Amino acid sequence: MFSGSIVALVTPFNDNGDVDYQQLEQLVEFHIQQGTDGIVAVGTTGESTTLSHDEHIEVVRKVVSFVDGRIPVIGGNGSNSTAEAIELTKRLNECGVDAMLGVTPYYNKPPQRGLVAHYKAIAAVTEIPQILYNVPGRTQCDLLPETVAELSKVKNIIGIKEATGNLSRLSEIKALCDDDFLLFSGDDDTGMEFMLQGGHGVISVTNNVAPKLMSEMCRHALAGERAEAEAINSKLQALHTDLFVEANPIPVKWCVAQMGAISNGKLRLPLVELSSEYHELLKSAMQKAQVL
């Protein structure tokens, strides 16, 4: 069920700063028509940190409704508070998601045994598949391969989004976990190579801007067709890099608005609109990907 090009979907806001559910439906339909293989709703790119819990749950619920079973939906359930993550998980149980994605606790920097206790406590309140999410560049908390291996023994912990960009992590986790443990790249820049080396897909920021190309690239990479995957990825490379010139999702939301897929690139404070010095850089990256 879970493989290929999975979009870490942006959350559109209207001019008043409220979630725009009409545009959200349009985004979901756009991705399905463009060949996206799955949607992560309300992850980092979806601005989970500034949505209220009620908004968070409603966005996920709406995405599930709009998708209507056509592709998998993964709901974000992460928090730096285990109790809060459990609360989100219990509420997501009723939303119809196919899986949940839980980022490592940020800011409080727990030890590895704390991470094991955290994820086991979350998994215990649901039967829905859980995907670990390791992004130490944002959280200052690194989920080590040995810890992943221990957590992979929990029945409903089925995979990991590994966003270090360090490809050696892939081989380490593969060596320690069973073959059915799912491995997703969370780093667009190395995502193609991650799949060519045995990963199952990419949970992607770039996919927001160039979903069709990302889907095609992933399909070739998963088939082991390096030349074909590299040819497509070369068109995407500037986006892979330049979508992070400022904190995600500032650049990607600006790009999606430039494409007309949403009406504005509005974010919630403390995130602010993209600096004008990066506008031409991102326009160039979009032109290379043939989306502008």
Results as ranks from 00 to 15, higher is better:
residue 89 T to E: 13
residue 90 K to T: 14
residue 91 R to D: 13
residue 92 L to T: 01
residue 95 C to E: 10
residue 101 L to N: 00
residue 102 G to K: 11
residue 102 G to W: 10
residue 103 V to M: 07
residue 105 P to R: 10
residue 105 P to K: 12
residue 106 Y to W: 12
residue 111 P to H: 08
residue 112 Q to Y: 02
residue 112 Q to V: 13
residue 113 R to P: 01
residue 113 R to D: 00
residue 115 L to D: 00
residue 117 A to I: 08
residue 118 H to I: 03
residue 118 H to Q: 08
residue 120 K to T: 05
residue 121 A to P: 05
residue 121 A to L: 14
residue 122 I to T: 01
residue 122 I to C: 09
residue 123 A to V: 00
residue 124 A to M: 00
residue 125 V to C: 12
residue 127 E to Y: 11
residue 129 P to E: 06
residue 129 P to R: 08
residue 130 Q to S: 02
residue 131 I to D: 03
residue 133 Y to L: 02
residue 133 Y to G: 04
residue 137 G to E: 04
residue 139 T to S: 08
residue 140 Q to T: 11
residue 140 Q to S: 15
residue 141 C to D: 06
residue 141 C to S: 08
residue 143 L to D: 06
residue 144 L to Q: 13
residue 144 L to S: 13
residue 146 E to Q: 14
residue 147 T to W: 05
residue 147 T to Q: 03
residue 149 A to Q: 04
residue 150 E to M: 15
residue 151 L to P: 09
residue 151 L to C: 09
residue 151 L to S: 01
residue 157 I to R: 06
residue 158 I to Y: 06
residue 159 G to V: 08
residue 159 G to R: 02
residue 160 I to K: 12
residue 161 K to F: 01
residue 163 A to G: 06
residue 163 A to N: 13
residue 163 A to T: 07
residue 164 T to W: 11
residue 164 T to I: 06
residue 164 T to Y: 06
